[in-house]
């Protein structure tokens, strides 16, 4: 398991669904934000978080949701409910005031972000990056794209280790971080070796990719494509069409 991953293996319908289908569902979720009133967005969030528990990924999804959403929610409610100057404001104390309108606006923004966050987390927790990349290859996306998504994910842990080693080495050599100019110098001492190594890696790897015929053809075969069915393909098209329709209506009716 890689350090950054919140993917949890499983066999639920959501786990088994083709990653592209799940992406299309996320698109629909984003389109819904245009039309859903704020109580709907919050209800949707609750629904998705509950669903996560049904899929046995509730713990990891809820924890991540709280870590990411809480600071934003606090900030948005305080800022719009208590600070921003609005026509209906009622002074409380010092620069604080109470605004019903502001609180509602905070609920609208908070609901939208919450819903998108919950949806994205469900996607990430049930989709292994490798499956997403294979499905991109199968969908005939340029192989360069899936490489650019895969390669950083694979290299993060390696580079984190290296950055740590460089830091230890420079500290052992007596690198100081007291004054401002110390820190600037330290920054250079830390980044130069990291970037030099990275460029050496990049150069060697581009040789490896060419040697293994990467992008020799516009498409590549995929040894074990993620499962996909005609029904799912039709569902995907429907989801995309519905998203376009929703956004279109929302903009037209506005």
């Amino acid at each position: 398991m890689r350090s950054w991953s919140i993917h949890r293996p499983g066999s639920s319908a959501l786990h088994r669904a083709n990653p592209l289908t799940k992406l299309a569902a996320l698109l629909l979720l984003a389109a819904l934000l245009f039309v859903l009133p704020w109580p709907g967005a919050w209800a949707g969030t609750l629904l998705l978080l509950t669903a996560a528990f049904g899929l046995h990924i509730g713990g990891v999804v809820l924890r991540r949701y709280l870590v990411l959403a809480t600071p934003f929610l606090i900030a948005v409610f305080i800022f719009h409910g208590l600070i921003v100057d609005r026509p209906d404001r009622m002074p409380l104390a010092a620069f604080l005031s109470y605004s019903q309108e502001g609180l509602t606006y905070a609920a609208v923004l908070g609901g939208r972000i919450s819903l998108m966050l919950a949806g994205s987390l469900l996607f990430v927790a049930t989709t292994h990056p490798a499956a997403l990349l294979r499905s991109l290859d199968v969908a005939r996306m340029p192989p360069g794209l899936s490489f650019l998504l895969a390669s950083p994910l694979l290299l993060i842990d390696e580079f984190t280790k290296r950055a740590g080693a460089i830091r230890d080495a420079q500290q052992a050599r007596g690198m100081r971080v007291n004054t401002f100019s110390d820190r600037l110098r330290a920054l250079r001492l830390l980044t130069l070796p990291l970037v030099t190594l990275a460029l050496a890696d990049a150069q060697e790897r581009s040789g490896v990719l060419n040697a293994r015929a990467f992008r020799a053809f516009p498409r590549r075969a995929v040894l074990s494509p993620p499962p996909d069915t005609a029904l799912e393909r039709r569902l995907r098209h429907a989801l995309v069409a519905a998203s376009v329709l929703l956004v279109g209506c929302a903009l037209w009716l506005r």
Binding site: S151, L155, F159, A163, R215
Partner: peptide, 20 residues
């Protein structure tokens, strides 16, 4: 391809830069 592999490591440098 050389630019592609450069972009890949640059993305990692962005992400790791924070830790430095």
């Amino acid at each position: 391809t050389r630019v592609l592999s450069l972009i890949a490591v640059a993305i990692v440098i962005n992400i790791v830069g924070n830790q430095i």
